[in-house]
């Protein structure tokens, strides 16, 4: 099943990935998606009807511990990386007006 990649598909995946693309990037993305997804379709040659999907190779399970704070207050240090900081918080533009 070859996927046909439309302009809408490109805009949709860019929106999902929170990216803004130039016209040239959109063209390139369309070509890349077609070519790379087309190649990924070779997986369809393999019958996996009765196979359980494997998201992790080692058995992983929930790990529980007591709800105790182990990383000390480090606000100043952490915020020193923020592009804009005020009163101990990272600053962003208003989301509601």
């Amino acid at each position: 099943m070859a996927v046909s990649i439309t302009d809408q598909t490109v805009e949709y995946v860019a929106a999902l990935a929170k990216l803004e693309l130039s016209e040239a990037e959109k063209e390139r993305t369309k070509k890349d998606l077609e070519e790379i997804l087309g190649y990924m379709d070779t997986m369809n040659e393999l019958d996996t009807e009765d196979v359980e999907p494997m998201s992790h190779v080692n058995p992983v399970k929930n790990v529980f511990r007591e709800d105790v704070v182990i990383n000390g207050p480090d606000r100043e240090n952490i915020l020193s990386n923020a592009p804009e900081e005020q009163d101990g918080c990272a600053v962003v533009p208003p989301t509601f007006n």
Partner: peptide, 24 residues
């Protein structure tokens, strides 16, 4: 973007879930 595509509704089974089965 390809990652977002293979996880997106309608393609999840054909790509991501298929890949997990191939992995097994």
């Amino acid at each position: 973007m390809i990652g977002a595509f293979v996880l997106s509704s309608g393609y999840y089974d054909a790509y991501y879930n298929k890949a997990l089965k191939v992995r097994a």
